[in-house]
Nucleic acid binder design. Structure first.
Length: 352
DNA sequence: TTCCGACAGTGGGGTCGCAAT
DNA sequence: ATTGCGACCCCACTATCGGAA
């Protein structure tokens, strides 16, 4: 006998980042949708969409709320991702953002979990039970609320295939575990990371008290005889590494921006410019429509590369696969860190 | 004593809305 | 009309600290 409960507040379970997808039958794997994480609370016909940080986002996705209102439930708490779907079937965060404010958009709500249904809390149930409940609730319906499929099998194989298809990555989940808000090792995400050598053309000063050397590097690539600005990179070094980097950059200082055209606005006025002689390696998730790198992080200087050798790599449908791996020996960090384990930074430890 | 997880802080690319220029 | 800024979203990563192992 289950006591009648109210729909609990939405507190999302988050995934830990790992270099490699986990293996074994204890795990199932889902596509990592590139959109907004949204919890959908239904209570007596009233629908509220919650962002990951507890903001009410019902007004941002009215069509999702309307579709949720039509579900045949008295009360429920769904967990999933609202994403914009491209013609090729992939989801695109940029397309989603572009869809704001305009009337035309193709949104889907991919539901991968169900934490409450008609007075009963499901969060303590094993994942596969909860997912079966999602599937029963949503069926194979072709509406905008979709059941997010999962896959069994080799995590590494599934990850490789996801990257080959140009997806953002996968999320692997322990099939037998309850739902736990916050970040823990029962959900693990592995991303399809791009890497690119880029030329350093300037840097900004740090803004906070916790840094004293560099805010961000301004990077670009040669094209048509000019250096094109590709964005800023503001993380990936230690304080010590940043100080060493700034000393080197100081010796390359020049008055004029080496970028054509120079970065616009405040950035173009406040940055320190340098002769474009240093090449660094940057990891990032994708090129934006504006030709900027998204989610960039500094991986180290490429002492073996000259700026003229840098080429912007264009994604091709079949070769976007970049298996997660450690950086190559040829791309050391600006400042080597003490290794804590033979494998370097391995974030994921399997809990028994 | 060592290790690890949680948290705060600093940085990125975007959108929108509003206020100042 | 343009520009700057803050509040949101999506993030990566480092530094720190307290508690568990």
């Amino acid at each position: 006998m289950v006591s009648r409960r109210k729909v609990p507040p939405y507190r999302a379970q988050l995934a830990q980042l790992a270099d490699e997808a986990p293996e074994g039958d204890a795990w199932v794997h889902e596509i990592k949708y590139d959109g907004y994480r949204i919890g959908c609370a239904i209570e007596d016909g009233a629908v509220t969409l919650w962002s990951r940080n507890g903001k009410d986002w019902t007004a941002q996705f009215p069509e999702v709320a309307a579709a949720a209102r039509r579900l045949k439930v008295r009360s429920a708490l769904l967990d999933g991702e609202v994403a914009a779907v491209l013609p090729d079937g992939r989801t695109s965060f940029q397309a989603l953002q572009n869809a704001f404010g305009t009337g035309r958009r193709e949104l889907l709500y991919f539901v991968f979990d169900l934490l409450h249904l008609d007075g009963e809390d499901l969060a303590e149930r094993p994942l596969l039970e909860r997912k079966a409940a999602v599937e029963r609730l949503l069926g194979e319906g072709a509406g905008i609320i979709r059941y997010a499929q999962h896959f069994s099998g080799s995590g590494r194989d599934i990850h490789r295939e996801a990257c080959r298809l140009g997806l953002e990555g996968i999320v692997s989940k322990r099939a037998d575990r309850p739902y736990r808000p916050g970040r823990n090792a029962t959900w693990v995400k592995t991303k399809c990371v791009l890497r690119q050598e880029l030329v350093v053309g300037g840097f900004t000063d740090p803004e906070g008290a916790a840094r004293d050397a560099i805010g961000a590097l301004l990077v670009g690539y040669p094209e048509g005889g000019a250096l094109r600005f590709a964005g800023k990179v503001g993380t990936g070094w230690t304080n010590e590494g940043a100080r060493a980097l700034r000393e080197r950059l100081a010796r390359l200082a020049q008055e004029q921006s080496p970028f054509t055209p120079p970065p616009p606005g405040r950035l173009g006025r406040d940055a320190h410019w340098v002769r474009p002689e240093l090449v660094c390696e940057v990891a990032f998730t994708e090129w934006t429509q504006d030709g900027k790198i998204r989610h960039p992080s500094f991986q180290g200087l490429r002492e073996d590369k000259r700026p003229e050798e840098v080429v912007r790599e264009r994604p091709t449908p079949t070769s976007t696969s970049t298996p997660t791996r450690r950086r190559t020996p040829a791309s050391p960090r600006a400042s080597p860190r003490p290794r804590t384990s033979p494998t370097g930074r391995s974030r994921i430890k399997r809990g028994r």
